[in-house]
Design a binder for these strands. Sequence first.
DNA 1: CGGTATCCCTGAAGATACTG
DNA 2: CAGTATCTTCAGGGATACCG
Lengths: 127, 127
Amino acid sequence: MVTKQLLKGLPEDADLRRADSPAREIFSDVANKWALLIIEALGERTLRFSELRNEVEGVSHKMLTQNLRMLERNGLVDRKVHPTVPPRVDYTLTEPGRALRTAVDAICGWTHQHLGHIESARGRFDA
Amino acid sequence: MVTKQLLKGLPEDADLRRADSPAREIFSDVANKWALLIIEALGERTLRFSELRNEVEGVSHKMLTQNLRMLERNGLVDRKVHPTVPPRVDYTLTEPGRALRTAVDAICGWTHQHLGHIESARGRFDA
DNA sequence: CGGTATCCCTGAAGATACTG
DNA sequence: CAGTATCTTCAGGGATACCG
């Protein structure tokens, strides 16, 4: 019954512009600094909470848990609790998560490629 | 002199994890909801301020100007002021802006492809 | 019409402390 | 170690008004 969406992928992003659409809601969740950095940091690896904390420099304990919960809720990361003591919790990207990661990779690559250009643009603008 | 980066693209995103790196600074600018929605809305077109306001539903006057300034400063959008009355201002993606847009497109496409999966994941999580 | 400035307030986000 | 809860702060962001 959702076969309508299987036709093609270009014009349907129109509803991303609708403030109340489900797509916009998901986009708003995902399109934020910490979420994207976490996804990028995870990559193909499985990392513990404390490892993620080190990988994503600057993220607070609170922001990390908060974003991990959100990503888990949306099915982008898998959360595996080991009933050991002390506790150990492993995070891994799910299939949708890895799919999104390729897009995040593109943004990261873009950032590095245009670093010089952007910094000089800033210099010009600030003058 | 920057040929080092031409080798391969994977390990260099390491400095995105450094909180004070230039790459992280750019990423923090760009990786936010409104900036990405504006870039996506512009696409290949040239739009006026008021048109953008309509395209990106839910964006306030303030957020729109604020993000457009930021994008202009980073050299991602070109701002063309027509000295008419009433004034008219056109916004267009620059080459770096269009390059980033392809990555944003990927995220938008991903959002739609995984919409169903995500919503059911949420249902499960919230239970 | 587009931009800036001001006011104001909600909520994002840090710090801290406690539990399993 | 990982997570939750509480408190507090400060700035993100809305609403409004005014300028060019």
